[in-house]
Design a protein around this nucleic acid. Structure first.
Lengths: 147, 147
DNA sequence: TTAAGTGCAAATTATTTGCAGTAAG
DNA sequence: CTTACTGCAAATAATTTGCACTTAA
């Protein structure tokens, strides 16, 4: 937990720009702002449209809510983000796009990555005839233990 | 695939009534109708509010959509149904209430049970300190294989 | 210059709720 | 009788969309 230096900030911009570019997306002011919040520090992140909207505003880079939605969709379509369905009522977006398990903290409605070995899938899943696996979602729903 | 006999229908009513009773719910006309559609033939079923609403109407037992929603919630609260979150945009309800994996057919938006051994979870999932597992959701997302 | 991106406000979709009437225990 | 249940219509909440304006290439 170190305060970000000028160097860090420059780096975050570069990362964001590169990231957009790798998805073939135009680097507009609002996309750069959102991208920086998502991948600016190289750490994985889980956001909702609302949380990202607020984060952008808080960072002094306000982006309209509609654009946040459109942008998240665009990032997903470009393969830069993965949509994770856990809550039914809202969508979560994950900067980690490989297939991996998640923890969902039911009390706070918060999503986080689970270590790849949190569950071991022994062998390939059985697949019905004529179908192929698009993805296997594993959600470990947690609640705070009553002590 | 046999046409249901009078015997089958009588049986379905009994099953539905018993099922409601086991959840401590009053056997109203609309609940019985919905319960019968859900567990009347002893087979497991996956429905959405909309699909159940239509099924009831088609069966000559119309139930208002609001009541379908309220009833599905009541069945869940009573532990008679499990809510499965796969689609983000709509909720699915499963008559099988134990923890088991699902197939989700992305093309048709259709949910079905996967055999318990479709994926083998080797060992207990790792759980962060201070938390306990409420449930582990495993969704095998399928798409029709392009031949 | 031009197609893509943005931001409002209005539209949609799934779901919930208020409330007056109805039915189960 | 009394409380829970039902159904409509109106309210919500998350998300999408139409359209005039802006901007990256």
């Amino acid at each position: 937990m170190r305060a970000p230096t000028a160097q860090d900030r420059a780096n975050a911009s570069t990362l964001a720009a590169t990231w957009l570019d790798s998805g073939g997306l135009r680097p507009t002011r609002q996309r750069l702002a959102l991208a920086e919040l998502l991948v600016g520090d190289g750490r994985d992140r889980h956001v909702t449209a609302e949380s990202l909207f607020e984060a952008a505003a808080a960072a002094g880079q306000p982006v309209s809510l509609a654009t946040v939605y459109n942008t998240l969709r665009a990032f997903c379509a470009a393969g830069l983000l993965a949509e994770v369905t856990v809550d039914g009522s809202r969508s979560y977006f994950d900067t980690r796009v490989d297939d991996h398990p998640h923890y969902f903290w039911e009390d706070e409605g918060h999503l986080s990555d689970a270590p790849n070995d949190a569950v071991r899938l022994a062998g390939e899943p059985k697949v019905p005839e004529g179908a192929e696996v698009a993805r296997v979602d594993v959600i470990i729903r947690l609640r705070r233990r009553e002590s």
